[in-house]
Amino acid sequence: MKWKKHLVTRFLEAVLNGVSLGSLYSLIALGFVIIFRATGVMNFAHSSFLLAGAYVTATVSAKSGFLVGLLAGVVTAAALGAFTQLVILRFSKDKSHLGLSVLSLGVNILAVTEITRRIGDNTLPLHDPWAASVWQFAGITVPVSRIAALAVAAALLTGFLLLFRFTRWGLALRVSAADREVAALVGVPMGRVSWTSWAIGGAMAALAGMFLAGFPAPGVEPSLTNSAMRAFPAAVLGGLDSIPGALVGGLAIGIAESVTATYEGHLGGFGSGASGLVAYVVLFAVLLLRPDGLFGTKVVSRV
């Protein structure tokens, strides 16, 4: 019974990979939540930020090395985020949250179409230092890229939490999420908080995108946007305005996805590819029980 012998290690591998994947989802979801807190917009352009970052990382690192490429990718995505807020959303006549959210969907279509056109049918390799190497210990095999992803994501998340706690920007973000009008009244520079939040959200998405395109994925492809789509449920699952919610939601979905991917072979033909759906299945389950997400602020309607 070879299969049985590996039962435990297989499960552990799945969970470990899931935590790593989940930390990336957390990163994406966190950017999403930051933007939502700062501007009340559900950023449907998030997947294009992620794709743009990964695409620029891949193309630049082919010529100038990985670190320069990564920097370029992060800056591009941040710039795209800031651009969306400063040039598109700010000048929209329709200022409703739903209007602006749908507007971001328009940005997404344009950006994704353009990048897809540039990538064509190719798969762009990342030129990342860890490539396809794996770590093995105690019978568990994990790609180095996943360990790196976990480490970077953990560092970034910690960094963000420190910013959120101890800087003026963090304070502004905390206040503005509670009540944008009040925040503006007490002198929080909402304009600056808005576009910096969009930029930070974009940068986080780019980093996550880079790791998602790395091993075991083949490289940068247009289908990378699907990964970003799986981070939407992570954000909503935790509660759109909740920072811990984004972290927990991302991890939950990463682990669920990874575990399903490990065992979906046992589900028959219909199961293959089911790991891509798990995010939404989990989302539906949670929303049925808690419509405002796990940690989201319950909206008290005022009449």
């Binding site: 559900m42 449907f44 949250h97 739903l98 959210s101 789509m229 939407f232 449920p233 954000a235 909503v236 759109l240 891509g276 759906l277 995010a279 939404y280 299945v281 989302l283 539906f284 929303l287 419509p291 909206v299």
Partner: peptide, 15 residues
């Protein structure tokens, strides 16, 4: 509500 529903509806697309 509206925005949450937008994301949830994405799930329907993928399923």
């Amino acid at each position: 509500r509206g925005l949450y529903l937008g994301v949830a509806s994405l799930g329907l697309v993928f399923i």
